[in-house]
Computed example of a mutant assay.
Amino acid sequence: MAVLNEEQEMLRDMARDWATNKSPVTEFRKVRAAGEPQAFDKGAWNTMAEMGWAGVIIPEAYGGSDFGWLSMGLIVEELGKTLTASPLVASTIAASAIILGGSEDQKSTWLPRLASGELVATLAVDEGPRHAPHSCSTSVSGGKLSGTKAFVQEAHGADLFVVAAKDGLYLVEKGDGVTLSTRKLTDQRSHAEVTFDGTPADSLAGGGESLLDDVLDRARILTACEMLGMAQQVFDTTLDYLKQRVQFNQVLATFQALQHRMADLFGDLAMMRSAVEGGLQALDSGFGVARAATIAKSEANRVLHTMSREGIQLHGGIGMTDEYDIGFYLKRARVLEASWGSSAYLRDRFAKLGGY
């Protein structure tokens, strides 16, 4: 496990206490039942912003705390454990794009509002059902952007979009020329097809040709943090169930075959944690980010897929009922596995990064 300093330990503990006591899975059930397009509790989001979470990776000069990516990952992991619905990950990724590629004017305009939580932003990249960031038909002419982005996360609650076009990334405000069509996915979170029709766009001209890949690597690592929290919670919940459930007059946890399966999952979880924390440390050090991000998300895909499937099976038939929380983790897992690169996509990318 990563070695944390005192501030990081306090931040992790604060996030754990808040998620456990103020944002358990029952709160996600309320969000789901409300059926609002933004699919998150605005009051909870305001509380997160007041605690400074929206500005963790934003420099102090622009209203953030600049605590770094490891600190951000600790928060996201704890929120993943309780399936907390919020735009924190999406907005943080969008903020990172402005930090990496924005001009001084763009940073001064947008980062303080993102750090305070006043503004929500999200990343709009893919135009089809599969992650293909460099297959882009969205174009800009005369400062006007036109194109369609599929399955944009947190689109309904976003005020600002970081949009990938043929010649780079652009900032686009929600308003005239921006149309959202809701896309219902199995995780019951906010997803939309977003159409831009001659919408004013401001180019993120800094960061060079690799800006999109750099931003996506941050998206992969932060998404893997949420997946790590989910995998840990599925493991803990399943283990507790096996210790309580009696079958054939024996507690399930006493069956050696089930002990072996849980031992395998425990080992997988340790591997996943190592890969994800390695990605966060790479971001903070600025060294080997592309490879670390690819490994982190690939391992997160593998382990959470197995963990969520085994969690359902080890719960038996009740695992698929709505009364049990375990099924929510499987549904969210399948969506996150496809976000920012499937396992096949990431294996191919890792080979290309190695020159193969």
Score class of each variant (00 low, 15 high):
L258K: 03
L258S: 04
H260N: 11
H260W: 12
M262E: 09
A263L: 11
A263K: 03
L265R: 02
F266R: 09
F266W: 04
F266K: 12
G267T: 08
G267R: 07
D268K: 05
D268Q: 05
L269D: 05
A270E: 11
A270F: 10
M271N: 15
R273E: 15
R273S: 09
S274I: 11
A275T: 01
G278P: 05
G278K: 09
L280N: 02
Q281M: 03
A282K: 06
D284P: 07
D284V: 00
S285Q: 02
S285Y: 02
G286A: 03
F287I: 10
F287W: 01
G288R: 00
G288N: 04
A290W: 07
A290C: 12
A290L: 02
R291H: 05
A293D: 00
A293E: 07
A293N: 05
A293Q: 03
T294L: 14
T294N: 11
K297Q: 10
K297R: 14
E299T: 15
E299D: 15
A300S: 14
A300E: 15
N301K: 06
V303H: 09
H305M: 13
M307L: 01
M307N: 05
M307Y: 07
S308M: 14
S308H: 09
R309D: 13
E310T: 11
E310G: 08
G311T: 02
G311A: 11
Q313K: 15
Q313T: 10
H315A: 15
G316N: 14
G317A: 12
G317C: 00
I318D: 11
I318Q: 13
